[in-house]
Write a protein that binds this DNA or RNA. Structure first.
Lengths: 207, 207
DNA sequence: ATATAATTAAAACGTACGTTTGAATAAATA
DNA sequence: TATTTATTCAAACGTACGTTTTAATTATAT
């Protein structure tokens, strides 16, 4: 048996698509760019994924699943430790999973971050496809914030948490650039960035 | 004489290009979409602007100029009133100009906001073309923040102010949507949103 | 009114797009 | 080994892209 050759092709396509869409956006990335850089045949995309849009969905799923899992696990652990975690605790748990992904192998460090950033600014229906993959963790963290700040209205917390996501994504996209919060993928730097960003957001959300 | 017909065509193209790029992004907008909706000939784009990229630059310039002017004027007035304005004062001045643009005629209310949002997430070189149009006011406000918070390092303020811009743009893009900060273009609502967002950001930046 | 310039129009340029097809090749089953 | 299935490949499908060209039209000025 060899699903070997098959999965190689499939993963190569996913890797390259993630890289190019992160760099150029969905509309700016052509399947011919993808297969050329991946070293596979053009028809392989439709054989394995069906269409360009389905390929995008596959890339998003591959990225979102572990992030959402980590986030929900971190939140659960936090709630097991403390009865009512602070806003800063909650935000730290929320930020840790995606930002620690920046610690992965150097090659795909920024790529994954930039891809997630693109997801939120792509035109419909691309944006919605991405959003629904992250929806589960967003709801859970919003509930946690509501318990920590019972005096704030739900709609208030909603737009504040939305801005927190916007900030997280901005930090991810700018990682490594001249004046960004995250300068290197060194564990200490990333941990410090998580703390600084959690403090920034906790202050704003609590205000 | 009639530069009449000419400026009509030119402005129609600018209007429609702004609308479509706001909705679909630069790569997702075709010149044939533009001229079809604008009711002008395809060649008119190249006659008046030279290329698709130059058309984009023209749209950005038309939007950015009044915003930057208003922002710098508001900052100057603030610094004339108070010797050392508070962080919240500064952020309010920064937010007021772009958010008050949402008070314009209902038709183009969200369009302009979404366009500015797109500018920051477009792939290069589109993003840079847009960024340089807003650069002047960014530097001025960063300087003002530095004077209000002399204990924070420049690089700290830089990523914080960058996140403030990200938040501003997110608020603009989401305006009118279900759980957004800005629900209507009613002057009172917008003014309240400016206050809330200024408080959110001032807390984060000062933290 | 006539000549000159500015603007619009229709059509085609070459290129690249996402997708489909049908044959060739490799792998798995019998 | 023979046969069926899964995968790769080269080529072409029709469509749409940004841009250019050339001619018709409109306005300005002599």
């Amino acid at each position: 048996m060899s699903t070997e050759a098959s999965t190689d092709t499939k993963e190569q396509i996913l890797n390259v698509a993630e890289y190019l869409i992160a760099e150029r956006g969905f509309a700016g990335t052509t399947l011919r760019n993808v297969v050329s850089m991946a070293g596979v045949n053009l028809a392989a995309v439709h054989y394995h994924f069906g269409s360009k849009e389905e390929l995008f969905r596959a890339v998003v799923e591959r990225i979102a699943r572990p992030v959402v899992e980590h986030e929900l696990a971190a939140l659960k652990q936090l709630q097991d430790e403390k009865k009512t975690p602070s806003v800063e605790d909650i935000m730290t748990a929320f930020l840790a999973a995606p930002l620690n992904l920046l610690l992965g192998d150097e090659s795909s460090r920024t790529v994954r971050a930039q891809f997630m950033g693109r997801c939120r600014s792509e035109p419909e229906p691309i944006q919605s496809i991405a959003a629904q993959e992250f929806d589960a963790s967003c709801q859970a963290f919003l509930d946690a914030l509501q318990r920590a700040l019972p005096d704030q209205s739900r709609s208030q917390l909603q737009w504040k948490f939305d801005l927190a996501i916007a900030a997280l994504i901005r930090v991810q996209m700018e990682a490594g650039q001249p004046h960004a919060l995250i300068q290197s993928s060194h564990p200490d730097d990333v941990q410090q960035a998580i703390s600084a960003l959690a403090a920034f957001l906790a202050a704003g959300i609590s205000a």
